[in-house]
Design a protein around this nucleic acid. Structure first.
Length: 271
DNA sequence: AAAAGCCCCTGGATGC
DNA sequence: TGCATCCAGGGGCTTT
């Protein structure tokens, strides 16, 4: 669920509220994808400075060190003063005097990892290979097109790989390709400059719109206040196999690329 | 360097 | 109702 918009909506929901708070306790549930990498008690007394996002990672800056948090496939965060006792899928609590940040993650593909700083090996391993931020100024059309020229793989998988541009997951990759009229199976290297420009714009506008709509809630996602998003209602192709294209009424098709579902309109995406 | 497969884990939907 | 099977938004790691 959590792609860039969901992670950003999550961040926006608690960044300002937790900034300046002192950590009172850290509680762990079942093991996540990776261990925390520090004794939980060692975080007590540290102060939360800010919460940033890099790709699909949340970076919780402390006055000493930082926490790298990933929602995986089924993770979501809550932030509140009066959270109930931890349930079976609650695997990380950061208790502060301003409220408790709680990670709920049924599939446990998510993780919370401590690092002394962003240059620490543990942080480099997770953040080092990431591509540019699609909503930032460093996402340049010319560089994007040039990078696509060097990749022979299908464009859908190049977008998902995240080493070129981050944050585009399965839903938004399908949506961005629809918006730019490109077949998901087309080799990235065969995308012309004008098409790359359309894709570049589509990625930016769709991700920004999804943040505005509170993200997409298909199953597990909710913001830190427990509310779902609405972007899924605006999906043109994702999850719509067999249904009429909202533009041309042609039935939407579904295929598998790299063990993941892809949706597209064979009429609107001919390129 | 790039691409393709594998796998981590749980739960919901579907089919018999 | 019970049970097996398939599928799911991610991404690091290994192999080709």
């Amino acid at each position: 669920m959590p792609e860039l918009p969901e992670v950003e909506v999550t961040r926006l929901g608690f960044a300002d509220r937790i900034a300046g708070a002192q950590v009172r306790a850290v509680h762990l549930g079942k093991p996540l994808r990776w261990g925390l990498g520090i004794e939980p008690s060692a975080l007590v007394g540290r102060q939360v400075r800010s919460v940033r996002r890099r790709g699909k990672y949340l970076l919780i800056d402390l006055d000493a060190g930082l926490l790298l948090l990933h929602l995986g496939m089924s993770g979501s965060l809550r932030f509140a003063h009066d959270l109930p006792e931890a349930g079976k899928h609650d695997h990380f609590d950061l208790v502060t005097e301003r409220g408790t940040l709680r990670l709920n993650d049924p599939r446990r593909f998510g993780a919370v990892v401590y690092a002394d700083d962003e240059a620490a090996p543990g942080a480099i391993k997770l953040l080092g290979g990431l591509g540019v931020e699609p909503l930032g100024e460093s996402f340049d059309v010319g560089e994007f097109h040039a990078a696509l020229q060097r990749r022979q793989a299908p464009i859908k998988q190049v977008l998902l790989a995240g080493d070129l541009v981050v944050g585009v997951g399965n839903i938004y990759a399908s949506e961005a390709l629809f918006a730019s009229g490109i077949r998901p199976t087309l080799s990235a290297a065969r995308i012309s400059r004008p098409r790359a420009a359309r894709l570049h714009e589509a990625v930016r506008s769709i991700l920004a719109r999804a943040v505005e709509r509170g993200g997409s809630t298909l199953r597990d996602f909710s913001n830190v206040d427990g509310q779902g998003g609405y972007f899924q209602l605006e999906a043109m192709v994702y999850g719509r196999a067999g249904q009429a294209c909202r533009v041309c009424a042609t039935p939407i098709r579904q295929l598998r690329q790299g063990q993941r579902s892809t949706f597209y309109c064979p009429h609107c995406q001919k390129y």
